[in-house]
Write a protein that binds this DNA or RNA. Structure first.
Length: 344
DNA sequence: AAGACGAAAGTGGTTGA
DNA sequence: TCAACAACTTTCGTCTT
């Protein structure tokens, strides 16, 4: 191989490396110019740019500066690979309310090796054994801690059965902790309060589950859950807005195998009914059921009252009552007539 | 026969005296 | 503490397609 060829090869390699560096720099820059979706008050455009270098929130279209003092939530250090990131980051995993000690306790490993992987002496082994024993005893110490651990595992079990997201579990666990702190468990079962806390967590996070759905995975009756929920909601002054019927629509529609068009129509129906103040004081479940029933007929994907009632957990009678009220107000009679549903 | 309809009685909870 | 009350459910008979 000739000398000149070697030189050329190296220079190509160097050029490639430079290109890679340039690209990572650009990428870094892009990351710092993160786009967010807000409506610009000046020109109405929906594109806004966050510039962390200048600490500004700027509209891309008209240049209007919405905020000139924004905070960069990212770390102030830079890391180029995994090792550096681990070394520089000063925090561990987030503290969580779903573990009885908030996930902050220390665990002593059950391996008889030191941190270098060497075996430890038999004398130290005995000491280590005693340390482990006490660690375990201290971790779940008094009755309060044990109850908390039990309640939180129960909470997690139910949340898993309902496949609820993480934030709901955190909110529920926090609600339960607050109930414990206020001594609200006295005279009530741990399971009852835990289930009520789960229900409260669902409400708080806007992931409504009906009492029926929760009762299906709980070990206490629906009545008990409702009663306990009302109690802790009052004591902890959690005053949530009544659930909007629209919150139920997408889930129930999907359970009924209804299309997106029906979801939209049902939402619209609920909105219009609300505007006329028709549904004030009526149970959100019944309203949602009626809206879905009407929407399914209008969109030509008819479901029977019984099918809807089954999924929603209300009765046919309730659906009928709500749907009559809505139909009367909107003059929908002829469009809702089942015999004509094929044509609409 | 299935689905929709409606009347009547019952249920669990709130409100106001 | 009790009765009145609103919303909803259960039950059942009738009508429609």
């Amino acid at each position: 191989m000739k000398e000149t060829e070697k030189v050329r090869e190296i220079s190509v390699e160097v050029a490639g490396a430079k290109e890679r560096i340039r690209k990572t720099r650009e990428k870094e820059k892009e990351e710092r110019l993160e786009e967010i979706v807000v409506e610009c008050p000046l020109c109405g455009s929906r594109k806004l740019i966050r510039d962390y270098k200048r600490a500004e929130l700027v509209c891309e279209d008209c240049g209007f500066v919405l905020d000139d003092n924004i905070i960069d939530p990212g770390p102030e250090w830079r890391a180029f690979d995994h090792d550096q990131r681990m070394e520089r980051s000063r925090t561990g995993p987030p503290a969580t309310y779903t573990i009885h000690d908030k996930g902050l306790s220390t665990m002593i490993d059950w391996v008889d090796k030191d941190s270098y992987g060497k075996a430890i002496s038999s004398q130290d082994k005995a000491q280590l054994y005693r340390l482990r024993k006490w660690q375990r005893r201290i971790r779940v110490n008094d009755a309060k801690e044990r109850n908390l651990a039990f309640a939180l595992s129960e909470l997690d079990r139910m949340a898993s059965a309902l496949s609820l997201p993480r934030d709901v579990r955190e909110a529920s666990a926090l609600a339960y902790r607050r109930a414990v702190e206020k001594n609200l468990i006295r005279g009530r079962s741990i399971e009852g309060v835990a289930t009520a806390a789960l229900y409260a967590g669902c409400r708080e996070c806007g992931v409504p589950r009906t009492l029926n759905e929760i009762a299906a995975v709980a070990r206490v009756s629906r009545k008990e859950i409702g009663r306990t929920y009302r109690f802790i909601a009052r004591e902890l002054s959690l005053n949530f807005m009544p659930i909007s019927p629209t919150a139920y629509v997408p889930r129930f529609c999907s359970a009924l195998n209804l299309s997106e068009a029906v979801v939209t129509k049902a939402m619209e129906t609920i909105r219009r009914a609300n505007e006329k103040e028709l549904m004030n004081g009526k149970g959100p479940l019944g309203v949602a059921a009626a809206a879905i029933y009407i929407a399914s007929i209008i969109r030509g994907e008819k479901r029977t009252q019984r099918e809807v009632a089954e999924v929603v957990g209300a009765t046919e009678v309730t659906i009928r009552n709500r749907y009559k009220e809505i139909a009367k107000e909107f003059g929908l009679e002829e469009r809702v007539d089942p015999s004509r549903s094929h044509f609409s």
